[in-house]
Nucleic acid binder design. Structure first.
Lengths: 352, 352
DNA sequence: CCAACAATCTGTAACGTTTCAGATGCTTGC
DNA sequence: GCAAGCATCTGAAACGTTACAGATTGTTGG
C-alpha cells in the first residue's frame, strides 16, 4: 500500500461518468484487476485484509459486474427464459407464473426474459433459438406433452430446464405439476356426494400430458363412485368461448344430458355455465359444476360453483427454483414437485 | 482469393462445435474479420461481390452475432425492459401487454425482459436499476402518475422509454393511453339514455393519471346529461374484491342509492355486481352498470352489463413501437398515441 | 509517367471479465 | 545458509464485436 507503482493506465480517469469496473477498484485499492476480481468472489488465495478492503471499496462505489463482460468471458448469461404460447385465450395465469418466477429470481442475479411463440411456429423454435444462441442459462416451458420433443432436445444437449407439467419420456428432468388426477377425483367425488350420476368432463387440450391425467382421474373416480360418463369430447378448454358455450348448450338439450360437469379451466367455465343456462337449465338445481380456477373470482360469477384452486404463482416459484437448482448442479430428479388441489374458502368449497 | 496468406490463427478450427463467429466466416471467405463485420451490415466501402459472398456464407453457416460481444463493445443491449407491479390482483391484462410487446419485438433483434417490483419497494428502484446498470436500451412503465418521478428521472438522463398512460409533467415523452375521459363520457351517456340519473363511479387508483381523466370525463358528462353523482370514493379498482363488494352492498342499502354504475376495471365489476346483488337488487332493473373490460368475458358473467373494451395487446404493441422509435432516433412527440374506447359486440354494447 | 485519388480491404485496440501461468516475498526445515 | 514451500499477488490472453487508422490496389488526370 506504500509502494504505489501506479501501473501506467494511460486513459484512466477514476470517476469519469461511467460506472465503476474492476479497473476502477483496482486503481483505487492499488491492486491488480485479477486480485480484485478474485477478492470479490471470495477466492481462497486472497489475504483476509485485502478481501475486506476490496469489498468495502466495491460496496462504496456501488460496483456491479458488467453482465456483457461476464457473459462474453464465461458464457454465463444469468438469464432464465420463460417460453410462452401467445395463443392462450384468457390467461391471467400467465402473469401469475411470471410473477412467481420473478419472486424467486429477484434474490439472484438472474433476469427473466420472455420468449413467445405462436401457433404458426413450431413450439420447438423458441427452444432451439435459446439453446443454439446460448441466450439463457435455463428455460421454463409449459404446455408439456407426454413425449415432448423440446424435452428430448434439451436433455440431449444437457441444457437446464424445467417443465410445467410432466412428461412420459422416461427422462429425468425437473418439473412442477398440479395433480390433475387428484383434481378430477375430488371433483367427481364432490358431484357424486351431491347425488349427480351422469358426469361430463371439459378436458384440457388433447395432446398435453395433463389431459390424460385428468381423464384418468375422472375414469378412476367414476368407477369408484359408480357414476357414468356423458361424453363431451368435441371441445376442450383451448376452444373459443363461443364454441364451448354452443357445444354445451347443444349437449344440455339432449335427452341424456349430464347432471354434473367438471371444468379444467376457470375461463372455460364461464362459457360452460352460459351454455347450460342457454339451454334453460339452472346451476345447483339441474346440474352442478366443479371447476378449477387460478384466480379467486368464479365464486362471484355463480355462487353455486364448486371451485378448486390451482396456484400458478406457486408454480412459477417452483419452476424457477427447479431450473436454478439444475443450473446449480443439483440432480434433476431432486427438482420435481407436485402441487395438491387446494380447497377454496367458503361453503361450497371442494377438498379436505 | 489466390494468395491465401492464412493468417496464423493458431487455434482456429472452423467447425469445432461452437457457433460460428465473425472469425469463422473470415476464415471461410479468406477475408479479415473487419471486412466481414462491415459486409454484414451493408457498410458502403465493401465491394458488391464481397458483400454478397459474405452474406451468403453467413446465411449458410447460420451466423448470429454474439450478443455479449456486441453489447460489450457498443453498449447496445438489444433488450427492452417491461417494468411491472406484482401486486396487481387480477391481471390478465398483464399477459396481454406482454404479448403485444412481444409481437412487435419478434420482428427485431430485441429481447423482452420483465423487471418486477412490489409494494415494498420504491417504484423508482427497478427503473434506476435498469438505467444505472444499462441492462436495457429502453423501458416501458405503467401505473403512470401525473408528476411521475420515473419519467423525470429518465428524461433527465435521456434514457428512452414509453409510458402506459400520460403524465402532466410538461415533458415530451412517448406514451400510449386509453382515452378514459371518453370512456367515462360514453358510459354516462349510456346510463343517461337508459334513464339513470344517480350515478356512481368506481374509479381507478388514486394518484394515477388516468384516475383524474376518468373523474373529469365523468364530471363533464354529468353536467352534459344533467345526471347527478352519488359519491363512491371509499374504494377504487385497486382494492380487494371483498372490500369492493362490501362497500358496494353498503352503498346500495342506503336511501339515496345510485341507479347507475361505471366501473373502471373488469375484475372489479365482478365484485361490484356481487355487492349490488347482496343488497337484493337486480342488474338491469334496479341499476345499470357500464364496465371496462380487457378480456371479452363479462358478457358471460351478466348479460345485462354494458361493456367497453380496452385492448391491452394493442397497448403493448404501441408501447413497443414507441420505445423502439425513440431508440431509433424519432422525436418523442411523434410517438404518442391514444386509443379510443371500443364498442363491444352484442346488443348491449356501448359506443358507436 | 507520376501524383493523387477512390475503392477495397486490413490489423490493432478496446469494451470488462476470468483463467492461466507465473512472480514476489516470506517462512520453514534441515 | 539455502532450497523448498506457502501465501499473496500479478500481467497477459482470451471471449466476439466494432471503431480507428491505415494499407494495398487500380484508376485517373495532368
Amino acid at each position: 500500500m506504500d509502494k504505489e507503482v501506479l501501473h501506467d493506465n494511460e486513459t484512466l480517469r477514476p470517476d469519469e461518468a461511467g460506472r465503476p469496473t474492476l479497473k476502477t477498484i483496482a486503481f483505487m485499492t492499488g491492486l491488480g484487476v485479477t486480485t480484485v476480481s478474485r477478492a470479490l468472489k471470495d477466492a481462497p488465495e486472497i489475504g483476509e485484509e485485502t478481501r475486506r478492503r476490496v469489498q468495502l471499496v466495491a460496496r462504496q462505489v456501488g460496483y456491479r459486474p458488467n453482465r456483457a463482460g461476464v457473459r462474453l468471458r464465461t458464457g454465463k448469461t444469468n438469464v432464465i427464459s420463460l417460453v410462452l404460447n401467445t395463443d392462450e385465450q384468457i390467461m391471467s395465469f400467465v402473469s401469475d407464473i411470471i410473477y412467481g418466477v420473478s419472486e424467486v429470481l429477484a434474490a439472484t442475479p438472474y433476469h427473466l426474459i420472455v420468449t413467445p411463440y405462436s401457433h404458426v411456429q413450431d413450439p420447438m423454435d423458441p427452444v432451439r433459438y435459446v439453446v443454439e444462441t446460448g441466450s439463457a442459462d435455463g428455460i421454463i416451458i409449459s404446455r408439456t406433452q407426454p413425449d415432448d420433443p423440446r424435452v428430448r432436445y434439451m436433455v440431449e444437449r444437457n441444457f437446464p430446464f424445467a417443465t410445467h407439467g410432466r412428461t412420459e419420456t422416461g427422462l429425468a428432468h425437473p418439473f412442477h405439476d398440479f395433480d390433475n388426477h387428484a383434481f378430477a377425483v375430488e371433483a367427481v367425488r364432490r358431484l357424486a356426494s351431491l347425488g349427480r350420476r351422469r358426469l361430463a368432463l371439459l378436458t384440457p387440450p388433447q395432446g398435453l400430458t395433463y389431459h390424460q391425467h385428468t381423464v384418468d382421474g375422472f375414469a378412476d373416480a367414476l368407477s369408484e363412485t359408480g357414476a357414468s360418463e356423458i361424453p363431451f369430447n368435441t371441445v376442450s378448454i383451448d376452444h373459443s368461448m363461443e364454441q364451448i358455450r354452443a357445444r354445451t348448450a347443444q349437449l344440455m338439450r339432449r335427452e341424456n344430458r349430464p347432471d354434473g360437469f367438471i371444468s379444467s379451466a376457470g375461463a372455460a367455465t364461464l362459457a360452460l355455465v352460459a351454455g347450460i343456462e342457454d339451454a334453460g337449465l339452472k346451476l345447483g338445481r339441474d346440474v352442478d359444476v366443479v371447476s378449477k380456477q387460478s384466480s379467486p373470482i368464479l365464486h362471484l360469477f355463480r355462487p353455486e360453483l364448486h371451485l378448486i384452486n390451482e396456484d400458478f404463482r406457486l408454480a412459477g416459484r417452483e419452476l424457477a427454483r427447479s431450473v436454478l437448482g439444475w443450473i446449480g448442479g443439483k440432480s434433476p430428479q431432486s427438482l420435481q414437485s407436485l402441487s395438491v388441489p387446494q380447497e377454496v374458502e367458503g361453503s361450497r368449497a371442494v377438498g379436505q
